[in-house]
Amino acid sequence: MNLPDYEFLSAPLWLVTVLHLLTFTLHLVAMNFLLGGVIIVLHAAVRRRWDDPTLAKFARLFPSATAATVTLGVAPLLFLQLVFPRQMYSAAAVSGWFWMGVIAAVITAYYALYRAAFKAQATGKVSKLALAVALIGLLYVSLVYSSVFSMAEQPDQIHNLYARNQTGLVWNPAAGDYALRWLHMVLGAVTVGGFFVGLIGRDNAEVFATGKTFFVGGMVAAAMAGMAYLLSLQAWLSAFMRTPAISALGVGILLSLGSLHFFFKKKFWPAGAMLFVSMLTMVFARHTVRLLKLAPQFDPATWRIAPQWSPFLMFLVCFVVMLAVLVWMLRMFFGSKKSAA
């Protein structure tokens, strides 16, 4: 019997990669706003930096930010599984319970943030406890992702770990591989969170100052963690230096500085655009490291390509419709006035 084979990509690899990296960057924007935002707002609440109405205003944004983070995370995870199924599922299976725990953690964080938002709405006060619970949930997710995705880049390690323990309770022991990478991600989130805090609080000197502090401080710290991570790549570093990713990264760093410049002048459009493009370059660099690490075992370019153009066209049309409907709805939402009934 000649049954259809499923080991193929239904679009050229470059196309899948573009979609993957683009949607992942979008996910990062939302995730950074959420994680960085929660950290900064919690900090402001504990240190009593902001007044209650300001804190409440921010607390009410987080549930929607969570929705955006989750929703925008689905697409890149889909493309990741499409191109790297062996690596992804194997790493996830070895850490099965931790991996499933992500769902529980996100649900917990989500409800905690809703609680904080409703309380802020009703009483004008922000619940530090709820924010702290949410933060713990989000940090859990970040740790699991760093652990699992870094394990996925080292298939040999997965084999060894699995041979010793099959219960799905394996936590990636090679912390050296991902501690700095994780730190860089979290600090990056604080940076971008600082940007958003400054943007939303642009008319409030206190809030803008906080945003500025975290934007600048986060960027310096994230850059240092990022550099340290690159250096820790050791053997891969020299290979990395020979890829286009290193130039992209250079451009990205310049763009972040440019973003700072415009941010100080409260020109948020160019600042935001530069920040976004610099995040794209870093996502590209991250992707390059993954390919380098996997190269001895697996090269995605070896996938057989069997395009499914008509389903792809369906996706493309729906994607455009999605963007159009989103814009239309948002304009309607912000433009609509409830008549005095």
Binding site: E7, F8, S10, T71, L78, Q81, L82, F315, M322, V325
Partner: peptide, 19 residues
């Protein structure tokens, strides 16, 4: 996923609007 990635991706666009 390999057979239906564009189906899933399409569903995702609906999901985004839904949310």
């Amino acid at each position: 996923i390999h057979n239906y990635v564009w189906g899933w991706a399409t569903e995702w666009t609906f999901f985004v609007v839904e949310i």
